[in-house]
């Protein structure tokens, strides 16, 4: 446990700490997430949000059981780095299967903007308070969220229509 994690653990005692292959990981609850990220930025010298991604555990046979955490289908994973202390920290938030939603941190770390849009596009996870939550990699009119495990690759033939709402004359 590095100094960053020690400091964080003192403030957020509910967060569950895991040493994952030598890396510091905290399982943070959805309600605490925004406050925790804000605390990282203001008090823990965290300078950058490196990456935001998500994992879909549907149909996973061998999932690690974490004491004190009720595991859900989706996990949102965010990586942070403190250049000053030269340490990293990772947050994992559990999200339920129906209408997964998590607060957006792109007003605290503007760099998370693209990452959150990608997660929204690929997993259909809603980020509350995001300034521009639109699809980023898939076409606007695409149905479904490709990286969900139940969205199989050959489900529908690829069909890029010319009927883009923004270009329609009658709108």
């Amino acid at each position: 446990m590095n100094s960053l994690s020690t400091q964080f653990k003192e403030k957020f005692a509910d967060a569950v700490f895991i040493d994952s292959n030598g890396q510091d990981v905290f399982y943070v609850s959805n309600d605490d997430y925004l406050d925790a990220v804000q605390y990282l930025k203001t008090d823990c010298d965290i300078t950058m949000c490196l990456d935001i991604t998500a994992v879909d555990f549907l149909g996973c046979n061998d999932r690690k059981i974490i004491d004190g955490i009720e595991l859900e289908r989706f996990e949102v994973v965010s990586n942070f780095i403190s250049h000053k202390r030269n340490e990293r920290i990772r947050f994992i938030v559990q999200l339920e299967e129906n209408h997964p939603s998590i607060p957006s941190i792109s007003l605290i770390f503007p760099g998370a903007n693209f990452g959150e849009r990608e997660v929204f596009d690929m997993f259909g996870i809603n980020f509350d308070g995001h300034p521009d939550l639109t699809r980023i990699l898939m076409p606007e009119e695409w149905e479904g969220h490709p990286l969900r495990k139940d969205d199989s690759p050959a489900r529908i033939p690829v069909n890029f229509t010319d009927d883009i709402p923004a270009l329609r004359e009658d709108v």
């Binding site: 292959n21 490196l50 991604t53 994992v55 996973c60 061998d62 690690k64 994973v77």
Partner: peptide
């Protein structure tokens, strides 16, 4: 089973790989 985030310096910046194994 496990998860890890590994990062190296590519010519364009930090390239990272987040990998989850079951």
């Amino acid at each position: 089973a496990g998860e890890t985030y590994t990062a190296v310096e590519s010519p364009r910046g930090e390239i990272g790989c987040y990998m989850v194994s079951d």
